[in-house]
């Protein structure tokens, strides 16, 4: 009974629920913005990485390697606390979105590259032999096939970005985690933290289940 009052105190959960919801809304905004911007950046980077002139390819590779190596928390702190020293002052929201986008873009670029490289060379040759322009070859032939291949790893990346939004709380962004810690302080009770954890779970579990389904599906197709 004591344990329940401490960790799952229903009156406190009900009282702090609006706070948690406003936090969730911010988490979703940060996550969705970063995911979309990361997709655009990643597609762009992957095309450079595959088809641009050598120096640009080199720059894209360096970019991708750096942003896949750097810990996101370090990047976020650099963006928020270090950049102001050179006159670049971003709001907590933009700091979080910029850091998440830079990293997600690097991972997405590698996912797209692998997807495009998985398309047999005969598809490119047939497109060129028919006289299709580069743009039509990509839009009509290559990307529609690549998208099917990249959906499972892209969904996985989305899950990671959504999870990593919690780091935004360190730059004073009132996201779900930050709201929960504040609610915990106000109520002098950890139930809001448990509430936040359950909300993350409820939100991300279905996506994880979706990825598993994709993977089972792909496995079966491969086996056939």
């Amino acid at each position: 009974m004591d344990l329940l009052d401490t960790f799952f105190n229903v009156p406190i959960l009900i009282r702090t629920f609006p706070m948690l919801m406003s936090g969730l809304w911010i988490t979703i905004q940060i996550g969705a913005t970063s995911i979309i911007a990361g997709l655009v950046l990643g597609l762009f980077l992957s095309l450079i990485r595959l088809y641009a002139a050598k120096p640009l390819v080199f720059i894209a590779r360096i970019y991708i390697d750096i942003f896949r190596s750097i810990p996101l928390l370090v990047l976020l702190i650099v963006v928020y606390y270090a950049l102001p020293f050179v006159g670049i002052r971003l709001s907590p929201f933009f700091s979080a979105v910029v850091a998440l986008t830079l990293v997600s873009g690097a991972y997405t670029a590698e996912i797209f590259r692998a997807g495009i490289e998985a398309i047999p060379s005969g598809q490119f040759e047939a497109s060129r032999a028919l006289g299709l322009s580069y743009r039509h070859m990509m839009v009509d032939v290559v990307l529609p096939q690549a998208v099917k291949i990249v959906i499972p790893p892209l969904t996985n990346n989305c899950i990671n970005v959504m999870k990593d939004t919690a780091l935004a709380s360190v730059v004073a962004m009132p996201d779900l985690l930050k709201q929960a810690t504040q609610a915990q302080a106000l109520a002098a009770n950890p139930s809001p933290l448990i509430g936040a954890a359950l909300i993350y779970l409820a939100f991300l579990w279905p996506l994880v289940a979706l990825v598993s389904r994709f993977e089972r599906h792909m496995g079966q197709r491969g086996a056939r």
Binding site: P120, G122, Q123, E125, A126, R128, A129, L130, G131, V141, P144, Q145, K148
Partner: peptide, 16 residues
């Protein structure tokens, strides 16, 4: 390329 058509050993049809 518009004047010259090509048929490949492995067909290379667009599967989607």
């Amino acid at each position: 390329r518009a004047e010259v058509g090509m048929v490949f050993q492995s067909f290379n049809l667009f599967p989607h």
